[in-house]
């Protein structure tokens, strides 16, 4: 066995030892990526454009929930039912703030371009401009340092799985993620609202002939994407704190997740997010933690080179 084989076997041994811990952490990150990826994929599905200001939609939810949690929790240590209520409140506050921000961006940065039939490049420039404006504004208003969200629960180890500690933070993310994704899936597949989104994604003009208000449907996709992004902003902030630049890396990774799963495809966004989260986490066994961003973006490059339509392909139109 050569030196490289020796290197690999040593690191696989690490992976085997840490497997469950890395898996749980990876899935939790993956759920957050997936929540943010929903926003990219929904907007892409109906408008065929990437909302590159989505990072700031995510940040808005993080800051809004930070201020509300700080006001309510302060220095106290909530537990029991209060914790559950506060987590739900944090998600609702983050989701609402981000939905509002998403709606504002649609009105200010995108709709005027849409009405003028602007080229795709104009949307990209508009999005980057809006993004820079927003995160610099946040830095100016809220300071340029990391703020910890007061924890709505005690982050103890809830149970142990094959020697790996599963903390409350992970349980919160997993439960919130599963509930939100299943609800969204059902809404898109079964309700009139979901049907209108799918109709616009498949053929906007014909959807309007059926009586679907296209402008309203587009606004709606920004709102839903905002709710998921804001919930992600809150959950991410619980673990890493909030800061004006917080959106940049998670949003790029969520974009990677959306492309990995098949941009425009809702289930793809979830699958892409989970795979990316776990892949990043497992790579810790092989490279230093500081390099995991490299892993994420190497994955993005590889998909774009070899399977640009992602795992499930582009198809927001489908109910499944």
């Amino acid at each position: 066995m050569g030196a490289f084989g020796h290197y690999l076997s040593a690191h696989f041994a690490t992976l085997r030892l840490e497997f469950w811990g890395l898996l749980v952490g990876g899935l939790a990150n993956g759920f957050i990526y997936a929540m943010v990826a929903i926003g990219y994929t929904l907007v892409y599905g109906v408008l065929r454009l990437i909302n590159f200001a989505h990072s700031e939609i995510f940040m808005s939810g993080g800051f809004a929930s930070y201020f509300v949690m700080k006001a309510i929790i302060g220095t106290s240590v909530p537990s029991g039912l209060a914790s559950v209520g506060l987590v739900i409140l944090g998600i609702l506050v983050g989701g609402t703030a981000s939905a509002g921000m998403a709606l504002l961006l649609e009105r200010v940065a995108y709709r005027p371009l849409r009405k003028r039939h602007a080229p795709k490049l104009a949307y990209l420039i508009s999005a980057i401009g809006a993004s820079y404006f927003l995160f610099n504004l946040a830095g100016k208003e809220f300071g340029r340092y990391n703020l910890s969200i007061p924890s709505p629960y005690i982050n103890h180890t809830v149970f142990t799985i094959f020697g790996a500690n599963v903390q409350m933070y992970y349980i919160v993310i997993l439960i919130a993620g599963v509930i939100m994704f299943v609800t969204l899936d059902r809404i898109v597949a079964k309700t009139k609202l979901g049907r209108s989104i799918r109709a616009v994604a498949q053929d906007a003009e014909t959807a309007s002939l059926m009586g679907v208000n296209i402008d309203r449907t587009i606004a709606l996709t920004f709102i839903i994407g905002g709710i998921f992004g804001g919930a992600g902003g809150f959950l991410f902030g619980l673990g890493s704190g909030v800061v004006y630049t917080m959106g940049f890396t998670p949003a790029l990774k969520a974009f990677t997740a959306a492309v990995l799963g098949g941009i425009g495809n809702l289930r793809g966004a979830v699958i892409g997010g989970l795979i990316l989260g776990v892949a990043e986490s497992f790579s810790i066994a092989f490279v230093q933690a500081a390099f995991i961003d490299v892993v994420a973006f190497a994955i993005l490059l590889l998909i774009l080179l070899f399977r640009p339509t992602g795992i499930l392909g582009e198809r927001l139109g489908r109910s499944a």
Binding site: K192, R198, M210, G211, G317, S319
Partner: peptide, 16 residues
């Protein structure tokens, strides 16, 4: 609508 079933297409006609 290519990715909707026949039934869903008919339902789209009754959207309003």
């Amino acid at each position: 609508f290519p990715q909707m079933t026949v039934e869903e297409n008919l339902e789209m006609g009754a959207f309003t």
